[in-house]
Nucleic acid binder design. Structure first.
Length: 123
RNA sequence: CAACUUUAUUGUGCGGUCGCGGGGGUAACACCGUGAGGAAAGUCCGAGCAUCGCAGAGCAGGAUAGCUGUUAACGGCAGCCGAAGGCGACUUCAGGGCAAGUGCAACAGAAAUAUACCGCAUUAUUUAUAGUGUAAGGGUGGAAAGGCGAGGUAAGAGCUCACCGUAGAACAGGUAACUGUUUCUAUCUGUAAACCCUAUCCGAUGCAACACCGAUUGGUUCCGUGGCAAAACCGUCUGCUCGGCGGUCACGGAUUAAGGUGGCUUGAUUUUUCCGGCGACGGAAAAAGUAGAUAGAUGAUCGCACACGACAGAACUCGGCUUACAGAUAAAGUUGCUUU
RNA sequence: GCCUCCUUAGUUCAAUGGAUAGAAUAAACCCCUCCUAAGGGUUAGAUGUGGGUUCGAUUCCCGCAGGGGGUG
């Protein structure tokens, strides 16, 4: 499609997932695990993994939605604060299902913006 | 009022803001309208739809198992019959055939489908053995020659008789399963969720099916042309057999593989009313327009109300079954207690 | 999504419908040794789960639960 209106794009291919798992930096928290790597495209990209361990289809969907919503809120902040664009892969954990988007949002703010936002300001 | 039985319905609701999938709309925005379930689940049955195979023939294999009906079909459902359980409403049942044949029945017991350990009776003799007859009594076992009484007998035995059970046949009633104050007969232990027999049904594979578009290059199959060989072997045609078909190499053409589009939602549709039927269900009329994604769409937040929200998320589509489920509501019925 | 197979000691496997469900190995304790290893002895199982058929199921049948494999 390649339209510029979309703020972020999904990662779909298995190769890219494996690449990120191997070579990305990892951020671990009780709610999720995140693999990040710089990206030479114009947009941020996101992939979400919800394994079978989390539960049934409803819980997996729930985890996916919560992460996506939190990322949607954070994404514009990232764009403002940093010139680079990144690939993210979020792996959901068992506790993700019980959390609300508020908490995830504040967590992401701390971990991701705290790390990648300020780095570039210093440069 | 309490304890139950059965059936049905519902599964937080309303409004605002941001965000997501499909559709309509626009030059492009804007905007409009719409968007998970009773089980969407398990994939256990039955169909539609699609492709393959269709010169067939036989065998194997699988499924079902009271009867009648219902349906597109079913192993589902409805009504009825029989058996078991419950005081009862009612619930549960793979519920054909061991009288077609074969097999199995450990241990115990004398003996497990055919026999004589003790016992009972009799014969022979050396008075304790041997032979013969016998299933009334003994103990074993889940099961011991259908049960019990009388006659009968050397002692006994369905050997005979009465009563009762089981199975089969006849007769009567019922569409049928089946039932019976009837009659006759008897190779009368259990097991077919043991092999098997009987009746009925079944070709195979599944939307990742399948159809169309598709660059270089590679592979597969088919067609055409040319060379070499024509028995056997090998391959293929549904699992097997019979039987049928096909030789191999090179070149050219078609075909196909990442991906895309269709299949993909108007269908054995849903709701209401009337008619037929005990019921499952069928018929007629009117109205509704009802998710179609392709890494896979429903979330966040604010306000109000209460019981503070269970199980759980469509992936080709339907009809069932099974399993999970916080509660709430309604209807019909049973039993017990109290009061009148 | 669809199609298939499996479930027995902690682990890897046995067991024809019939006694108290075996074997190897691991674990614990004891013996042997100056000590360790090896060797010897002893010990401990709801046959995944709920029903059914049967006199009696690990075994036969049905429903759940869990796990594995194949398929673009």
């Amino acid at each position: 499609m390649g339209d510029f209106r979309k703020k972020y794009v999904c990662i779909k291919k298995d190769k890219e997932f494996r690449f990120l798992f191997n070579k990305g930096e990892s951020i671990v928290s009780y709610a999720f695990i995140c693999y990040v790597r710089e990206n030479k495209r114009r947009v941020n990209r996101i992939g979400i993994v919800t394994g079978k361990k989390i539960g049934n289809a409803v819980k997996r969907n729930r985890a996916r939605r919560v992460i996506r919503e939190a990322f949607r809120l954070i994404e514009p902040l990232l764009r403002e604060q940093s010139k680079n664009r990144y690939d993210f892969i979020f792996v959901a954990r068992a506790k993700t299902t019980e959390l609300k988007t508020d908490k995830l949002y504040s967590l992401m703010n701390k971990l991701i913006i705290g790390k990648y936002g300020k780095k570039n300001e210093q440069k």
